[in-house]
Simulated scan of single mutants.
Amino acid sequence: MQQQDYRQVLVEKFVDGIEYSVETLSLRGEHQLIGVTDKRLSPGSLVEQCHIYPAALPEETFARLARYITRLLDEIGHHHGPMHIEVKLQDDDIQLIEINNRPGGDYIWDMVNKVSGVNLVAETLRYAFSGQPDAQTRRRRQRYGAMSYIALFHSIPPQTISQALAAKVGLDRVQCQLDNGQPPKAIGNSFERPGFILIGEQEPAALRSALPLVEQWIDSQTHHEEKRA
């Protein structure tokens, strides 16, 4: 490549490990690791299929991540506001994938609010010049012990979802854009997903038990629509 007059070459490698999202809030230079989100991709693609908040991480791993993000945020000079950081963990190694000074997408911001009681935008504004969040106020805002965002890759009427799942899981929000009779197309990126389901449970174990039920039901609806097509 140098012989072809490329003066600089950027070489990237594939990073092994399990990918997580780290949600942080910095208030006037003091960094807090609010929580870690478990991310699952659609098989064979890079499109997110499911987020689980909070991720089931050992305390030692959580503490190691907290030390890492503190050094990282200090290094880049981040002083105030939320940060959405994507990392991969493999053994004791932490690899930075992406960092953005905003709350996490795919309703991660909403899951953080309802599980951790931390409204990332409101607290950023409220404590811009003075004051600190009150732990009791955060606890009063908590609605669930754990939540999950489940993306839809085929259109399913929200009413159909609610009727089938409301009595079985803690259905918090359902949103889906109907296809208006158009044939389904392959999803190439996150913006092309037609909708999502947001579920919440008081106990993390209950959420993880409910996830296979929801995913199996979505798969059954998808196969049914494929047969009709």
Results as ranks from 00 to 15, higher is better:
153 F>M: 06
131 G>Y: 05
113 N>S: 14
37 T>C: 04
41 L>E: 13
208 R>F: 03
104 G>L: 01
30 E>I: 10
175 Q>I: 09
208 R>P: 01
68 Y>C: 07
14 F>K: 11
116 S>D: 10
6 Y>E: 13
50 C>S: 09
78 H>G: 04
173 R>D: 10
25 L>R: 00
48 E>Q: 02
199 I>G: 00
183 P>K: 08
49 Q>D: 07
68 Y>M: 08
74 D>Q: 13
188 G>F: 09
34 I>T: 02
83 M>V: 11
93 D>R: 12
3 Q>C: 10
57 L>Q: 09
175 Q>C: 13
219 D>H: 15
85 I>A: 03
18 I>G: 15
77 G>M: 04
165 L>R: 03
13 K>D: 07
56 A>T: 09
104 G>F: 00
5 D>C: 10
124 T>N: 03
148 S>I: 00
99 I>S: 05
161 I>M: 09
123 E>H: 13
204 P>S: 07
198 L>C: 07
104 G>Q: 01
176 C>D: 02
183 P>A: 07
65 L>T: 05
43 P>G: 04
193 R>S: 04
9 V>Q: 09
37 T>V: 06
191 F>P: 06
67 R>C: 13
62 F>L: 13
162 S>V: 12
120 L>D: 00
128 A>K: 08
199 I>W: 00
166 A>Q: 12
24 T>F: 02
82 P>R: 01
163 Q>L: 14
45 S>M: 04
183 P>N: 07
77 G>N: 04
162 S>F: 14
223 H>C: 14
12 E>K: 07
214 V>A: 01
123 E>Y: 13
48 E>K: 01
166 A>S: 15
108 I>F: 06
76 I>D: 06
76 I>T: 05
36 V>F: 05
192 E>W: 05
102 R>A: 03
162 S>C: 14
212 P>K: 08
59 E>G: 12
224 H>E: 15
53 Y>F: 13
73 L>A: 04
141 R>T: 02
127 Y>L: 05
75 E>K: 15
39 K>A: 02
25 L>T: 00
35 G>Q: 04
128 A>M: 08
167 A>C: 07
85 I>D: 00
62 F>N: 06
223 H>L: 15
98 E>L: 10
